[in-house]
Simulated assay, not measured.
Amino acid sequence: MVDHKALIVALDFDDIDSVLRLTDQLDPSLCRVKVGKQLFTRVGPSAVEQLVKRGFDVFLDLKFHDIPNTVANAVSAAADLGVWMTNVHASGGSSMMNAAREALVGRQNKPLLTAVTVLTSMAEADLAEVGFQGAALARVVALAKLTEKAGLDGVVCSAQEASELRKVVDPAFALVTPGIRLKGDAMGDQKRVVDPAAAIAAGANYLVMGRSITAATDPIAAIKRILSSLEPE
């Protein structure tokens, strides 16, 4: 069964007023929201706090990647904000991911902790440029296995890799998939994109979508159409 809040709306704005105008049109019972580097850097933690007060589950998408102690403290600070999910880079290694996981032990309202595998803006030529020789899928699978071994809750990956990951990770291991586009939408800076229904069919749990919803004339109607498309016929 598809999670009734499988959609995560990416709030890629520069100011809180734009965020609040959009979320006034959204229903927190139908979707979650994502705060990334753009909004967080412009507005700060108050953006998260205001969204939490409005009843939204917030995915704080800052992709922490640093020495273990620094990442552990950052993840702890994210949890203090009341976020539903936060993330790190799996390429930071098992010591860093273990430290992040341990920072959340014992918390009553512990957020999901996920790890980024390979950015959906990267194709195989981009990976080769930074020294990785081989298919993007092999890199994603290796990092997902490392993430699962470290005890995290899931990974951020392209939906193009979801079906292969479902063969090698536990069914409860979450797959969070950005780069989701409706048919006919511009790809923007994404290179490994999938439409919503295909992503869910491949095994994705959560779909991160931005302009397809935020630029719609009626964002909540767009969400309802997308959710309807995810249900089995």
Results as ranks from 00 to 15, higher is better:
K191W: 02
I226P: 03
T41V: 12
E49Y: 07
Q25H: 11
L60I: 15
V19R: 04
V33D: 02
T114S: 11
V9Q: 02
L104H: 12
R21D: 15
R107I: 15
L60E: 13
A204V: 00
V156T: 11
L146W: 04
K183Q: 14
K167N: 09
L7R: 01
F56W: 04
L143Q: 08
G106M: 05
G203H: 07
Q108Y: 08
A144F: 03
S94W: 09
A79H: 12
G184Q: 09
S29P: 02
L22I: 07
K5T: 14
L143Y: 01
A198I: 03
S212C: 03
A79I: 12
A197S: 13
R21Y: 09
A79D: 08
V48Y: 00
L143M: 11
E164V: 00
R32W: 08
I213K: 00
D3E: 12
V141L: 12
D61G: 06
G179A: 15
I200T: 07
V35E: 06
A222G: 11
V140G: 08
V75N: 10
L112A: 13
I200F: 06
L81T: 11
V33S: 00
A74R: 09
I180S: 03
L26R: 00
L146P: 06
V52K: 02
V208K: 02
F56P: 00
A142S: 13
D80E: 14
L119G: 12
I223A: 01
I220Y: 03
A74Y: 01
N205P: 10
S94N: 09
A72G: 13
R225Q: 15
L119W: 00
S121L: 06
L182Y: 04
Q50T: 14
E49H: 04
D80T: 07
G203Q: 06
A10S: 14
K149L: 10
G36L: 00
E148S: 11
